[in-house]
């Protein structure tokens, strides 16, 4: 039972990493850049929840997702688009700059306070209070409501995204652009438009990830996006950066490793060390990641 609980927790934590990792990997696949401001979208999403929660929890969730998608498009337009064709280093430095900019703006606007928005207790006030405290018990098995919702959301998002990429014209165009921008343009595909859609999807997923994080009543602060952001980046690389199933797999693996490491008292303090060691080992053994393909360089 202990094992099963840890496993389910790992799936749920990993699912959130996977959701964030999808943003990194899709943007990398299509715009060939590492968007290091991606983690801070999580933070912005969480503050939007704090801001809109007094109005209505459902409104807060929808607003956070939509506004983060718009923010993603906006950042791409003003910060990254002018650098299309510039050296990768210039784009990388810009992304780090955007990351600090978002953190500083949040600090100025929201002040130094930390918040605990806990939207779940607003959504299900009865259930989150006594006597269950948000825990569903079936026989000897129990699961937190937040974990259950996270698992459901992750399953829906991954299925929807996979179907979108596989079976829609826009989804196929995304794969085409990630493979060969020039040939895609020759087909009449507007590459800028596809990049914009990619940023919108990635940022909306980051917002959703942040909402799921706040479901666990975690705190909201200006630097809260950094660690999950960097872990999700590690997950994307482990799975194979640029690969959508890779990001899903990498996220789940990292979440499972994290939860199982935390379950063993002797190694629990080294959880983060173990997670990033996994990244280093992967880079040494198979730098392209589990599902990554070696791309032939075009002359």
């Amino acid at each position: 039972m202990e094992f099963l609980n840890t496993f389910i927790n790992g799936l749920s934590v990993g699912g959130v990493y996977a959701m964030i990792a999808l943003g990194y990997t899709m943007v990398y696949g299509i715009a060939k850049m590492l968007n290091f401001a991606h983690g801070d979208i999580i933070m912005v999403g969480a503050y939007l929840i704090v801001l809109f929660l007094p109005i209505n929890p459902i409104v807060a969730i929808i607003a956070a997702i939509i506004l983060c998608a718009i923010l993603g498009i906006f950042i791409e337009k003003i910060a990254y688009k002018p650098l299309r064709g510039a050296s990768p280093l210039a784009v990388l430095i810009t992304a780090i700059g955007v990351s600090y900019l978002l953190q500083s703006l949040a600090q100025i606007i929201a002040g130094p306070n930390t918040y605990y928005p806990d939207p779940l207790s607003k959504l299900f006030p009865e259930f989150m209070g006594e006597p269950t405290y948000g825990i569903i018990t079936i026989g000897s098995f129990s699961i937190k409501l937040s974990t259950l919702i996270t698992l459901i959301c992750v399953a829906i998002v991954m299925t929807a995204l996979t179907l979108f990429v596989k079976y829609t014209r826009t989804g196929r165009a995304m794969v085409a652009v990630s493979e060969d921008k020039g040939a895609a343009q020759l087909m009449g595909i507007n590459v800028n438009h596809i990049i914009m859609i990619t940023f919108a999807i990635g940022s909306a997923l980051a917002a959703l990830a942040s909402i799921l994080t706040t479901f666990d009543a975690s705190k909201v602060s200006t630097t809260m996006g950094s660690l999950p952001g960097i872990k999700a980046f590690a997950a994307a690389v482990i799975g194979g950066i640029g690969s959508i199933p890779g990001a899903m797999l990498g996220g789940i693996i990292l979440g499972l490793v994290e939860c199982f490491a935390q379950a063993v008292p002797a190694i629990a303090p080294y959880t983060v060390t173990i997670e990033f060691s996994l990244l280093i080992i992967m880079l040494l053994v198979k730098p392209t990641g589990i599902l990554g393909k070696k791309r032939r360089e075009k002359v």
């Binding site: 794969v175 020039g182 040939a183 087909m187 009449g188 590459v191």
Partner: peptide, 30 residues
């Protein structure tokens, strides 16, 4: 470039540059 196709000029580029990861059907869809 992407607007020129709409006017009726299409190019089969050097080296073919088909989308290797997509199916034959999806290439035609593109």
């Amino acid at each position: 470039c992407h607007k020129i196709v709409h006017l009726g000029m299409t190019q089969v580029p050097e080296g073919r540059r088909i989308f290797q990861e997509l199916s034959v059907y999806d290439n035609l869809l593109m």
